[in-house]
Amino acid sequence: MKTSILGTLCLTVAAGLMSTSAIADTSDRRIALSNNYAGNSWRQAMLTSWEKVGGAAVSDGTVAAADAFTTAENQVTEQAAQIQNLILQGYNAIVINAASPEGLNGAVKEACDAGVVVVSFDGIVTEPCAYRIAVDFKNMGKVQVEYLAGRIDGGDLLEIRGLAGVFVDDEISAGIHEGVAENAQFKIQGSVHGDWAQDVAQKAVAGILPSLPEIKAVVTQGGDGYGAAQAFKAAGRPTPIIVMGNRHDELTWWKEQKDANGYETMSVSIAPGVSTLAFWVAQQVLDGKEVPQDLSVPFLKITQDTLEVSLANTQAGGVANVEYSLDDAKAVISGN
Rank of each mutant, 00 (worst) to 15 (best):
T3Y: 06
A15D: 11
A15N: 11
G16I: 10
M18Q: 10
I31H: 14
L33A: 12
N35P: 10
G39C: 12
R43C: 14
A45G: 14
T48Y: 03
S59M: 08
D60K: 15
A64F: 10
Q75W: 09
Q75L: 15
A80V: 08
I83C: 00
N97K: 06
A99G: 06
P101Q: 08
G103W: 01
N105T: 05
G106I: 02
G106H: 00
A111Q: 02
G123D: 01
T126S: 09
E127R: 01
I133T: 01
K138T: 10
V145A: 08
L148R: 12
R151Y: 06
I160R: 04
L163C: 00
V180D: 05
N183Y: 14
S191R: 03
S211N: 04
E214Y: 07
E214A: 14
T220A: 03
G227I: 07
Q230M: 15
P238V: 09
T239E: 15
P240F: 04
E250R: 02
E256N: 15
E256F: 11
D259T: 07
S267D: 05
S275W: 08
F279Y: 13
V281H: 07
L286Q: 03
E290V: 15
S296M: 14
S296T: 15
K301T: 07
I302F: 08
L307D: 00
A320K: 12
V322F: 08
A331D: 07
